[in-house]
Design a protein around this nucleic acid. Structure first.
Length: 227
DNA sequence: TGCTGATCATGA
DNA sequence: TCATGATCAGCA
């Protein structure tokens, strides 16, 4: 068995899609072995492992910069855990949410979330039951661009959420707000805090938040692709 | 079972 | 330290 070198970034979208398609149907363990990477026994201490493996295998830039995974293609890669019916098992992280009014005032079109969601390559990873991580199967990739209705719903949720933040209502904002996009805590732990203005213009401490795509929304997206 | 809130590892 | 990659864990 020969070991392959780290893939270069794909030259274009077609090559990216071709690479992802070639991985489809393979257990993630064999993808890892191809590059000589170890497969963890579980993900308790390696929650992002599958996503990072696929980034590596597809030639995404390493690391965690605030850019799309394939900057030259303006494409964001998202691995999404699904069951045997291609139904997502988890929500999908989008990006951190700025909590200052100046940034939020720039609006949806200028937002980080809007740019990240402009073009997304979803790679489903099929997990049947509680099988070992390595046995999860890479699924067929889905290129997605939000359609007019998707954009309308995303913008509506973004406006609702950021509008409340601007009014100082962050403390009363929870994950139940938003039809397709939601705001949730996003931190290493509860000790991570920043200061924001509340509704009475008082400075209060709060934890960082992130935007997530609801499971029901990514479920729709995959259903459109797979029928 | 689904959802929200909490948490883990890594790289720049 | 912050943003990336997400999944874990507990409760309704």
């Amino acid at each position: 068995m020969s070991m392959e070198p780290r893939p270069r970034p794909p030259a274009d979208e077609a090559q990216l899609l071709a690479r992802a398609t070639e991985l489809a149907g393979r257990p993630v363990r064999t993808v890892a072995e191809r590059f000589g990477l170890p497969t963890p026994n579980d993900l308790k201490a390696h929650k992002g492992w599958v996503g990072q493996l696929l980034e590596y295998a597809l030639g995404a830039s390493a690391g965690s910069r605030a850019e799309p995974d394939f900057p030259h293609l303006q494409v964001e890669l998202k691995t999404v855990p699904v069951d045997s019916q291609a139904v997502p098992r988890e929500s999908t992280y989008v990006c951190v949410c700025p909590l200052d009014g100046v940034t939020l005032a720039q609006g949806w079109e200028a937002s980080w979330a809007r740019r990240k969601l402009a073009r997304v390559l979803f790679v489903p990873v099929v997990q049947r039951g509680d099988e070992p991580v390595g046995d999860r199967m890479v699924g067929a990739p889905v290129f997605w661009e939000p359609g007019p209705d998707d954009l309308r719903r995303l913008k509506q949720d973004w406006d609702e959420i950021t509008g409340r933040i601007s009014l100082g209502e962050l403390a009363r904002l929870d994950g139940s707000v938003g039809e397709v996009l939601q705001l949730r805590p996003k931190a290493a732990n509860l000790t991570e805090t920043t200061w924001v203005l509340d509704g009475d213009a008082e400075w209060v401490q709060t934890g960082p938040r992130g935007f997530y795509l609801r499971r029901s929304f990514t479920r729709e997206i995959l259903a459109r692709a797979f029928g």
